[in-house]
Simulated scan of single mutants.
Amino acid sequence: MKDKTRIVLADDHPIVLTGLRNLIESEADFTVVGEATSGPEALRIIREARPDIAIVDISMPGMSGIVLTRRLTEEAPGIKILMLTLHEDRAYLRQALDVGARGYVVKRSAAANLVSAVRSVIAGGTYIDPAIVNRVLNRSPAGNRVSIRETRDLTDRETEVLKLSSLGLTNKEISHRIGVSVKSIETFKSRGLAKLEIQSRADLLRYASQVGWLSDI
């Protein structure tokens, strides 16, 4: 029998914690192994419980989720961090990615997206809330949904595919959006990642932030 995914929850609102716990434990393969209402308490519990993933609010008393994530990334890189927050502006998202968060979910869509986000992060992916992704895509000018930016020796198509991938779109979704086959998307992505020497989705997301692909978030 497969072990359950062990999760710690950290939010300074007890009502939110209760809702999160009910949502998480409605999944047969998830279990909550600790809860915290402040940054220092979250750090202590995560150190003791050694969960697979911690779901952390950005704004907590005593220590922000950003500082907490930075410390955990340095101390225990095997523990994945998923940010849950009210903030939808790019500054918070960039900070979260820069300190090592593997997921970013806004609270207003947690009921619909949190479980999927946890599964994506546990599987080794990086998750950005679709509401934020849609803001980026909807702001792009008509006829050029994704701004193309030359990056090293990437072709325009490789850049376009990698940018959409960094925003969380699947190969199938990218295929529909730009009108080429899924097989071609896989080829463009593979070539682009090889040129950039990027090995993981998390590295791609950090790179996207550094070169400005997420600047419209």
Rank of each mutant, 00 (worst) to 15 (best):
H13D: 06
R119P: 02
L137C: 07
I148W: 04
A123G: 09
L9A: 08
Q199C: 06
S38I: 00
V161F: 05
H176S: 15
S166I: 08
A76N: 11
P77W: 10
L169P: 01
E158V: 14
H87I: 07
Q95W: 02
P141Q: 09
R149L: 14
E88Y: 12
D11A: 05
A123W: 03
R71L: 14
D11Y: 01
M63W: 02
I66Y: 00
I185Q: 11
I24N: 12
S209F: 01
K163Q: 09
L137T: 07
D216M: 08
P130L: 05
V16T: 11
L82M: 09
T155H: 11
H13M: 11
E150I: 12
L204R: 00
S109M: 14
V56G: 02
E41H: 02
E160F: 06
T73C: 04
I46V: 09
H87L: 09
G39Y: 00
S147K: 09
R206L: 07
N138S: 13
L193R: 10
T31E: 14
E41Y: 00
I79W: 04
V99Q: 00
V133Q: 14
N171R: 09
L114G: 11
E197G: 08
M83K: 02
G78Q: 14
V8L: 05
T151W: 12
V105N: 11
V33M: 07
R145Q: 05
L193Q: 11
L68M: 04
A10W: 01
S200N: 12
E186D: 14
S140P: 02
E25L: 08
N134P: 05
A91L: 07
R145V: 10
T126N: 06
V146W: 03
R50W: 10
S190A: 12
L164D: 03
L167E: 05
R152L: 14
E160W: 04
E41K: 06
V105F: 10
D203P: 02
A111R: 11
R94V: 09
L193A: 08
I122V: 15
L169T: 03
R191V: 10
D203C: 01
R94I: 12
L97M: 03
S184K: 14
K2I: 06
E27Q: 15
R177Q: 08
V211G: 07
R70A: 08
F188E: 15
S184F: 10
Y207W: 08
S215I: 08
K107D: 13
I55N: 06
G179W: 05
P77L: 11
I148K: 07
P51H: 06
H13Q: 12
D153L: 13
V118D: 04
R139P: 01
